[in-house]
Simulated scan of single mutants.
Amino acid sequence: MAAPGRTNSLLDVDGIAVGQAHDATVRTGVTVILPETRAVCSADVRGGGPGTRETDALQPHTLVDAVDAVVLSGGSSWGLGAADAVAAALGARGRGFSMQNKPGVPVSPVVPSAILYDLTNGGAKDWGEAPPYARLGREALDACGEPLSLGRAGAGYGALAGSLPGGIGSASIVTADGYTVAAIVAVNSVGSVRIPGREAYWAHALEIGGEFGGYRPEGGAFDAEDWGDAKLNPNPGENTTVALVATDAVLTSADAKRLAIMAQTGLVRAIRPVHTPFDGDTVFAMSTGKKPLADPAPLTLTRLGSLAADCLARAIARGVHEAACSEV
């Protein structure tokens, strides 16, 4: 049977490191996903208010099909500055895309990013012309290789999942034939991750080993217009769930796009409502290319996409559960 990997996190995908940094005074943070070598990656954007960098370059019809890192950040548009700093640091290390290997011609690091809005969470945001995101991006990059913290960490440090504390979640699964699929997510949604009036998460049916508390729904039906712990007065651009799913399977750019599309279903399984005009929901999909797709390849990709959606749903519930535990 399939089962979670050793850490039940994105770190179970061979060839990926994660680094995180936060500023407790500002109540914000950054998460960097760093493949050991350039990795095939794509993205799917479903929210009505996204904030992204270089996601257009990841579409299957474009020239560049691999990335050097992916950055998830708080800070709304300010947070996109974290990816600039990560790209600068990786470029200084000689990592990046190159059309011509000539002396004096620098490589171009490909560092896509997606941000969430955490500007109204009470932190000190009076940074003037010196926002903290470049610093936090460098710190998160330097932290790659460390154990992964969940809950109030990284890009999810200042997040709110509906009216509950949001945070960083992660989950993994290893199939019987040896493929690893995993997800990492920063949950800052309009919608609620819990069933109205219950402690149980929408993703409860996918839970493995009590990883987000083991709560099960009790009672009868609920009002279809009851959104439970959702934000009651959402404003455009002030929310968003940003995530990355990854696998060690060999994928093309088109395969990675399909994986990202299928993984978006994990948000639907874990958050209600989701993909609203007020969210910027974005999911990246990455391949480290360690294990060829078994024939028939489309069926294997379908299996991986379904597992990616499950992992993302579990990661969302884990992130909010771990954030609640850290608030106690």
Rank of each mutant, 00 (worst) to 15 (best):
A224D: 15
V190N: 03
D226C: 09
A183T: 06
P236H: 15
V268F: 14
A243P: 02
E218G: 13
T240W: 05
S172P: 10
A182M: 13
F284V: 07
S170K: 13
L244K: 03
T300E: 13
L259K: 00
T241G: 02
T288N: 10
T276C: 00
D248Y: 02
A171S: 15
G289I: 11
G266K: 00
A183H: 05
V283F: 01
P298S: 08
S189V: 04
T282V: 04
G289W: 06
D279I: 02
M262K: 05
T282G: 04
L267V: 11
D255K: 02
Q264M: 12
D229H: 15
F212I: 04
T247E: 02
N239M: 04
S287E: 08
F284A: 04
G219V: 08
G228I: 11
A203M: 05
P196Q: 13
V242A: 07
D229M: 14
Y179D: 00
G237V: 04
T180I: 08
A221Q: 14
H275G: 11
G266I: 00
A203R: 03
L299D: 13
G280N: 06
F222S: 11
E238R: 12
A224I: 15
V190Q: 06
V185S: 04
G280E: 02
E238C: 08
D229R: 15
D295C: 10
T300D: 07
S170Y: 15
V245G: 01
T282K: 03
T240R: 09
I184K: 04
A182S: 14
V181R: 03
F222T: 14
I168T: 11
G219T: 08
N233I: 07
V245H: 00
T276R: 00
I184E: 01
M262I: 01
T247C: 06
F284H: 05
G191C: 07
G210L: 06
P196H: 12
A186S: 15
N188W: 09
N239S: 14
I271Y: 01
